[in-house]
Amino acid sequence: MLRKWLATPYILWAIIFTIIPLAMILIYGVTIDDGGIRFSLENIMKAFDPIYFKALLRSIYYALISTIICLIIAYPLALILTEKRNAKVTVIFIFVLPMWMNFLLRTYAWLTILETNNGFLNTVLRFLHLPTIQIIGTPNAIILGMVYNFLPFMILPIYNVLSKIDPYVLEAAFDLGASKLTRFVKVILPLSIPGVISGITMVFMPAITTFVIPKLLGSGKINLIGNLIEQQFVQSYNWYFGASLSLVLMVIILISMGILNRVDPSREGGAL
């Protein structure tokens, strides 16, 4: 009885902040306002117009690349960290500390570092008589911003899973004559898949929806789907089309998560 009662705040929370907004997006997404509000799939179809669909494909592409880079950086790092003593403290300090700072502020900081003429990096390069780089306003800057901002979401779940692997399992592998490589491929890697999956979802989702990173680091020259959605709400007040775009994006995220869940049916990774 007490348990049931304790759950009510969470249920209320879920209803107010998840279910009602989702229902509103759904309703706005499949209606249009031309004099009167009526049901129509017109806006959903419009979301597949080349202008919008290309932005969507571009978002998926950038998010995928960022996720892969994050994975490549995060996995070895998590491996190293699990083998080190006091690793937990290090992890928290190196990767969680920047997260205490506001996301927007961190992105602004990158802008200051990377600026072409008088940015910090190029000033240093010029001082050392090295060639300067021009990265602001290019897709590379956007991907860099994504990788930097979302990397901790990849490291932490992988580290968690790796550090929970039973050391006896690893010893057993050795006892049975496995080399270091075999042990990694046959034991560690399969056991860490849940963490990898949850890392992928936690990086891919914010990366595909971000609109601040392309705005600042991409100099507003490249529109991602997040920018288009924001624009519909803020610039043209077209909540109907904005909701349609969000709906399409959500369906795509749902599909990709469905695919991921096939890889990890037990869902030991924990995320979603």
Partner: peptide, 10 residues
Amino acid sequence: LEKWNELKAY
């Protein structure tokens, strides 16, 4: 806005 998005669509 559509024209604007066309501009940004590369």
